[in-house]
């Protein structure tokens, strides 16, 4: 199971707001041999998707060296409806309280114009030491570049990009 839970970034305002898209095809592992009667996306994955939207927003807002970002605390999550195979989710992440160490954010998910979930949470910076013995720092940096390219944000130079497909 891959653990990147954003497929596209459509809007990015550094330090403020990110809008992105995540789809859940039937190929996702969660749908296979599920012990739930309804093939719904496990809510913990929606939590992660919302957190990753915030994480991409923050790491795109940092300088050259990407810091690790740690999911420090979830204040509150509310789920309004379930997500099914084939659903296309529109995920927003917004910075609520910027700070040096831990930032408070809010993310929302909307599908077919209806609210799916929202979450308020804290992401903390984890300064990665290139010399730390059990970390492959090169691999980490490389993956950052790849992910930024695939999500469509590596062309960001100024403050905002808008890749809205419509």
């Amino acid at each position: 199971m891959r653990y990147i839970l954003l497929d596209q970034v459509t809007t990015l305002k550094k330090g403020e707001l990110l809008k992105g898209i995540k789809v859940f095809p039937l190929t996702h592992e969660a749908f296979r041999d599920s012990v739930n009667y309804r093939p719904v996306v496990p809510p913990a994955l929606l939590i992660e998707a919302m957190a990753q939207a915030g994480g991409v927003l923050l790491s795109a807002s940092f300088g050259e060296e990407p810091s690790g970002l740690v999911f420090a605390k979830i204040e509150d999550v509310e789920f309004f409806t379930t997500v099914w195979p084939g659903d296309r989710l529109f995920i927003d992440a917004q910075v609520l309280e910027p700070s040096e160490n831990a930032t408070k954010l809010k993310s929302t998910i909307v599908c077919d114009g209806k609210p799916v979930a929202h979450m308020s949470y804290f992401l903390a910076k984890r300064t990665l030491d290139p010399d730390e013995s059990n970390i492959d720092y090169e691999a980490f940096l490389r993956s950052h570049k790849t992910r930024a390219a695939v999500l469509g944000i590596s062309k960001l130079t100024g403050g905002t990009i808008d890749n809205q497909s419509q």
Partner: peptide
């Protein structure tokens, strides 16, 4: 774990 996080 491959993506969370690569190298860590």
């Amino acid at each position: 774990l491959e993506d969370h996080f690569p190298g860590a």
